[in-house]
């Protein structure tokens, strides 16, 4: 029974929400979510790669021989990641400096390879793109949410993009920044809290 495009799209936003529901792709989730802007940038980059690889894998699914499919997926994904890396260097250099090694590491993000293998290789182009968009946007929202939580707790501020930023001190004058939240151990604690909340809601 084929699902509608809308179902393919929305499943990534809640039912199969990558980091929080499937608990997949945690390396960038823990690594880059020190600020909202980093999380958003990483999410958009991953979404682009995901859409590109799902589209191509789905288009070529008749041509790719099953025994070398993983190698083919990796070539396609690696090509898209390198394109993203070059584009980020050319247009958003400060963000590229902050995300650093995590951009090339999208290659080994299990979400991207997972969607290619589990979905795009078996489904037609339109549903594959819908699936990629849903999962990608879900991933982006999750990273941004975790990033803003950590930035709010750790720095007491929230930078939406560029110079557009808000300070929590303006709202709650007695707020003390909790630097722990922006450090590596804080990432685990914040992720744990998020998983706990998501699981409570999902029950």
């Amino acid at each position: 029974m084929a699902k509608t495009l809308k179902q393919e799209f929305t499943k990534g936003l809640w039912k199969d929400l990558p980091p929080f529901r499937l608990v997949l792709g945690l390396c960038p989730v823990l690594g880059v979510t020190t600020t909202m802007e980093n999380g958003l940038g990483m999410g958009v980059a991953t979404t682009f790669v995901l859409c590109g690889s799902n589209l191509l894998v789905s288009l070529l699914r008749q041509a790719i021989p099953p025994r070398v499919r993983i190698a083919c997926f990796v070539i396609i994904i690696a090509a898209f990641v390198t394109v993203v890396e070059l584009l980020m260097q050319a247009y958003t250099y400060p963000l590229y400096l902050k995300l650093g090694v995590f951009i090339p590491l999208i290659v080994v993000n299990c979400i991207v390879l997972g969607r290619a293998e589990a979905f795009a290789y078996k489904n037609k182009v339109s549903s594959s793109v819908a699936d990629a968009l849903g999962i990608g946007i879900g991933f982006t929202l999750s990273l941004s949410l975790l990033g803003s939580l950590r930035e709010l707790l750790g720095n007491g501020s929230l930078t939406i993009w560029g110079d557009l930023s808000y300070s929590i001190i303006d709202v709650v004058p007695s707020f003390q920044p909790f630097t722990f939240a922006t450090q590596a151990p804080g990432a685990f604690v914040c992720l744990g809290l998020m998983l706990c909340i998501i699981n409570l809601i999902g029950k």
């Binding site: 021989p65 070539i75 396609i76 390198t82 070059l86 584009l87």
Partner: peptide, 20 residues
């Protein structure tokens, strides 16, 4: 298939690289 994919990927990357 593998050779073709790798060749096309290489070509696209070279184009993007020189373009940016």
């Amino acid at each position: 298939v593998l050779t073709g994919l790798a060749t096309i990927a290489g070509g696209v990357l070279a184009a993007v690289h020189s373009g940016t």
